[in-house]
Design a binder for these strands. Structure first.
Length: 576
DNA sequence: TATCATGA
């Protein structure tokens, strides 16, 4: 018998299945099968095929026989080597593949009987889900469809006048696109506003909130992270909460008090940084949205998709069943900035434009370096002297940030932090906590929301003092010094280098990033785009051309197996 | 084959 067991955050299917999943490359992780809900038969088979390929490769490797197509194979055959057992092995593997496929089908059928998975016909294919993800996806699609069709109040005042009033109040001039975005918030039931950094998303929210307020309507402001919520409330001068908080999350029970039976109250709900919202969170959120409430979703569709399943912002936009305003004019940086130009090129999958040789005033540089050691050395050199000199900044300045795609490795976040601490902040007596040391003047990052201290996950600070007697540390965040007790030390981490994911939502004058083929799993267009657009004045990429090319060409992570987009299209077609 | 991450 197969059973679903819950262990920590992971669902395990009994031993045979795990064995099967391991052998077949099917991983059951974070409550869903193969990384994404709605995995199709076709892609399941591809995964299996891939695993068999790897096995084949591995088998050859063990017998010192290279795989056809590899450089080594070509070289050796050129030299007259013959690999006679090649064919047998391949044939065996093909048989194995059939057996594996059959085993997977049987396992999934068995799981279906136990209602441990939901199998759904979709077009000519079949989709496999864990029940929760199936339910979540259905609910999100149906509710978005229903909410969009629900009648709503349109303003009884002159909208154009209201917009110019806001312009005056905020003392700025909206572009025509921005004006449109503001006005559409009042003319549409559900609206998506998307645009890159510097396209004025927050200013638009500000104006929208202002107009709603003057109209006498209640607006709820929320964001998926504590930091984004804090930023939102700072710019709008109104209360903004995390989505978890507006839904009144209960961490002990893992439930939300707000839901169908206890909906949110208000006339409009604005979610900022919507690109970070994943399918489960959207499910809980949408359940708590009453029919009359307007929904305004704001985010950058080109940023990193949520780590959790789903790619909702993208799916909503692509489905063309939700109204979208795209902000594409850039205000923050000039048009001749290579950072801006290249950010656009990355999103189109075009190759980058490099500064002319010897150019000293460009804001983007690519230092070609194939060797990991050399990349490492270059980064050290950039951080200790070249960048601080060029921008006249202190080497310890929080305005210089190293970003890395991964934690592991010589040019990973962890090692870079260790080495940068040694070079940038030597000779300081620090406090040891486990295997790390916190020193005076160190750059640190808060990694957990703390509402008492008013610091949030992702906030960057500097160690102001270290008290060796009481084992306390004082950290200065934006002019405020906060005291950390010994047992609070896990709330901060050294932050000379941070992951690209962590850097999302922050901006720095200068950004340095290694990019090598060893990061291949992370080499995605969105990742590179996010890293590049964190810099305002200077962005330096150190790495191999091949890695750069892979990253730009790879738009795969955008294509997830969720069927939110397809289902939104289907549901509106079926109703006609 | 193995990476990133939020929330109370």
């Amino acid at each position: 018998m197969l059973k679903l067991l819950k262990k920590g955050n992971t669902v395990e299917i009994n031993k045979r299945a795990i064995c099967l999943t391991k052998e077949a490359g099917l991983e059951v992780r974070g409550d869903f099968i193969v990384g994404t809900p709605g995995e199709t038969w076709e892609s399941l088979e591809k995964t299996v095929r891939f695993t068999i390929d790897m096995k084949l490769d591995y088998a050859h490797f063990n017998k010192f026989t290279p795989f056809p197509g590899t450089e080594l194979y070509e070289k050796l055959t050129e030299q007259g080597h013959v690999f006679s057992f090649q064919k047998d092995l391949e044939q065996n593997c093909m048989k194995e593949l059939e057996v594996e496929k059959e085993k997977i089908k049987q396992t999934i059928e068995e799981l279906k009987k136990q209602k441990a998975v939901v199998i759904e016909d979709f077009d000519s294919d079949k989709a496999v889900y864990l029940p929760f993800f199936h339910k979540a996806q259905e609910q999100v699609v149906q509710t978005i469809h229903r909410l969009g069709a629900f009648p709503f109040l349109t303003p009884d005042f002159n909208l154009d006048q209201a917009v110019s009033d806001e312009e005056e109040e905020l003392s700025l001039q909206f572009s025509s696109k921005q004006k449109l975005a503001v006005k559409e918030c009042f003319q549409k039931k559900i609206l998506v506003i998307t645009g890159g950094p510097g396209t004025g998303k927050t200013t638009i929210i500000k104006a929208v909130v202002g107009i709603f307020h003057k109209w006498g309507k209640d607006v709820l402001l929320a964001a998926p992270t504590g930091r984004a919520a804090k930023r939102l409330s700072e710019t709008t001068h109104r209360e903004a909460k995390t989505i978890h908080r507006i839904l009144e999350y209960n961490p002990k029970l893992g439930t939300f008090r707000r839901g169908e039976n206890c909906p949110l109250s208000g006339d409009a709900l604005i979610i900022d940084e919507f690109s970070m919202v994943d399918l489960p969170l959207m499910y809980y959120l949408i359940k708590a949205v009453p029919s009359w409430m307007r929904l305004i979703l704001v985010g950058d569709k080109d940023q990193l998709p949520s780590v959790g399943p789903g790619n909702l912002l993208h799916d909503f936009i692509e489905s063309q069943r939700v109204e979208v305003v795209r902000l594409d004019e850039i205000f923050r940086q000039e048009k001749d900035s290579l950072i801006v130009v290249n950010a656009h090129r990355i999103n189109r999958g075009d190759s980058l434009i490099y500064p002319p040789k010897g150019e000293k005033n460009a804001d983007f540089y690519f230092i070609r370096q194939d060797d990991e050691q050399k990349v490492f050395k270059t980064i050290m050199n950039l951080c200790t002297s070249r960048i601080p000199e060029k921008l006249s900044l202190q080497p310890l300045s929080p305005q210089i940030q190293v970003i890395s795609p991964m934690y592991r490795g010589l040019v990973g976040v962890d090692n870079l932090n260790k080495e940068l601490q040694q070079r940038l902040n030597p000779n300081q007596e620090g406090l040891k906590f486990g295997n790390r040391e916190i020193r005076e003047h160190d750059k640190v990052m808060q990694v957990r929301n703390n509402y008492e201290k008013e610091v949030f996950n992702g906030d960057i600070g500097m160690v102001a003092y270290v008290d060796r007697n009481s084992y306390r540390v004082g950290v200065e965040f934006y002019g405020r010094t906060l005291v950390y007790e010994r047992d609070e030390m896990d709330d901060i981490t050294i932050a000379y280098a941070v992951s690209v994911h962590k850097s999302q939502g922050s901006e720095y004058q200068a950004v340095v990033m290694p990019l090598l083929t060893q990061h291949y799993i992370m080499l995605q267009r969105n990742l590179f785009y996010t890293a590049l657009t964190r810099a305002r004045k200077l962005s330096v990429i150190v790495g191999s051309y091949k890695a750069l090319y892979i990253a730009i060409k790879n738009d795969k992570p955008v294509k997830r197996n969720c069927l939110v987009k397809e289902k939104l299209i289907k549901i509106s077609r079926d109703q006609k």
